[in-house]
């Protein structure tokens, strides 16, 4: 039987919206890299030094890992129509826990788990305020944002706080080490990405989060436990921030709650937005969020190699944010369109 109304093949269906969405961020990344290639002829060169890969491309990936991890958690929270401003504080707290327990002499594997547990607790706190008490996400996470770095400093005081630096083969191995030529944190980042992807896409959690973010009332009536799902989103975000905290803390061999990962929440939100996530919630794009984080890092790196003062970084970021947002805003697009075509509303 020839079925005219036969649905298109699955491949087409996935590919069409996919390419459309991925086009702009990927194009942006490509343009940045091509410009870099023109500025510095050796830009794409990758060589092996002391048993590990070196080169600008590797460097971009390497530096983008912490932001990308935070941004992935942020993408989940933003998908639920929320936002988490406290990720920087969570990083500070998990870092402080590491320094504290190392001074207390715990096994380093246990310390890793403790640091992650601390970040999960932070995420639960945020989730409780948002889903339990019903406080607006920006306001609710502001509390931990303000006080979290103080909590980190306090944890450092638990052992005197005079010298928060430490050495740990395990943690530094995870952060700055390398395995078969590849920096370990790239492998770790990839593993975490896959793990998160499995949780979001191989269970129904992602669908539920998107449903709650898209229309919480409807999701509730369709049988989704909106509160629990929102809570889960903040816990996931806390955990991802905790991993970023482990990498950043091990990188500097010290816990510095005051200035570690300053403004990382902004970079993370920016990465999600560049990746096509709408702050109005309802969609989670994990892969595109990573691209967003890479775009940010590539920008930073190219400002460095272009010889421009690094100060331009912030300004360029700001311009990129505004540009992307104005393009994303339907309202502005139509109105700009009207103005361009000479019409008025």
């Amino acid at each position: 039987m020839t079925d005219v109304a036969r649905l298109p093949r699955r491949r087409d269906r996935v590919a069409r919206p996919g390419t459309h969405r991925a086009l702009w961020p990927l194009l942006a990344l490509a343009v940045i890299l091509i410009v870099d290639g023109m500025i510095s002829p050796n830009f794409f060169a990758i060589r092996i030094v002391e048993g590990r890969l070196f080169g600008n491309l590797i460097d971009i990936l390497y530096r983008a890992v912490p932001t990308a991890l935070v941004a992935l958690g942020m993408a989940v929270v933003i998908g639920s129509k929320g936002v988490d401003l406290s990720v920087g504080s969570i990083i500070a707290i998990s870092g402080a826990v590491i320094a504290w327990r190392i001074h207390a002499g715990d096994p380093h594997f246990v310390i890793l788990l403790l640091a992650l547990a601390a970040s999960v607790v932070c995420g639960m706190w945020n989730g409780l305020l948002v889903a339990g008490i019903g406080i607006q996400p920006i306001v609710a996470t502001l509390i931990l944002m303000v006080s979290g770095r103080g909590v980190g400093m306090l944890i450092n005081l638990l052992y005197g706080g005079t010298d928060p630096s430490f050495e740990s083969a395990l943690l530094q191995g995870l952060s700055t080490g390398h395995l078969w030529l590849i920096p370990t944190r790239l492998i770790l980042g990839a593993v975490l990405f896959v793990a998160l992807w499995l949780v979001i896409r191989r269970t129904a959690l992602g669908l539920f989060i998107e449903a709650v973010g898209g229309n919480a009332a409807a999701a509730n009536l369709a049988g989704v436990n909106a509160r629990l799902v929102t809570f889960a989103a903040y816990v996931i975000c806390g955990l991802m921030a905790g991993w970023a905290g482990v990498i950043l803390t091990a990188d500097t061999h010290t816990s510095d709650p005051v200035s570690v990962a300053l403004y990382i929440e902004l970079d993370a939100i920016l990465a999600v937005v560049i990746g096509g996530g709408s702050l109005a919630g309802g969609r989670i794009y994990l892969g595109m969020t990573v691209i967003g984080a890479l775009v940010i890092q590539a920008l930073t790196t190219s400002i460095l190699i272009s010889g421009l003062p690094p100060e331009y970084n912030l300004i360029i970021k700001a311009v990129v944010v505004l540009f992307v947002l104005v393009l994303q805003s339907d309202n502005a697009r139509t109105r700009i369109g009207q103005i361009v075509s000479g019409g008025r509303r």
Binding site: A204, L207, E210, A211, A218, A219, L221, A222, G223, G282
Partner: peptide, 21 residues
């Protein structure tokens, strides 16, 4: 307001309650 999640696809909307169950 209460029925559909507009951003999601027809498929996702259809399986929502079944999945929630």
């Amino acid at each position: 307001a209460e029925g559909l999640i507009g951003e999601l696809s027809i498929r996702e909307n259809i399986v929502m309650s079944m999945q929630a169950k």
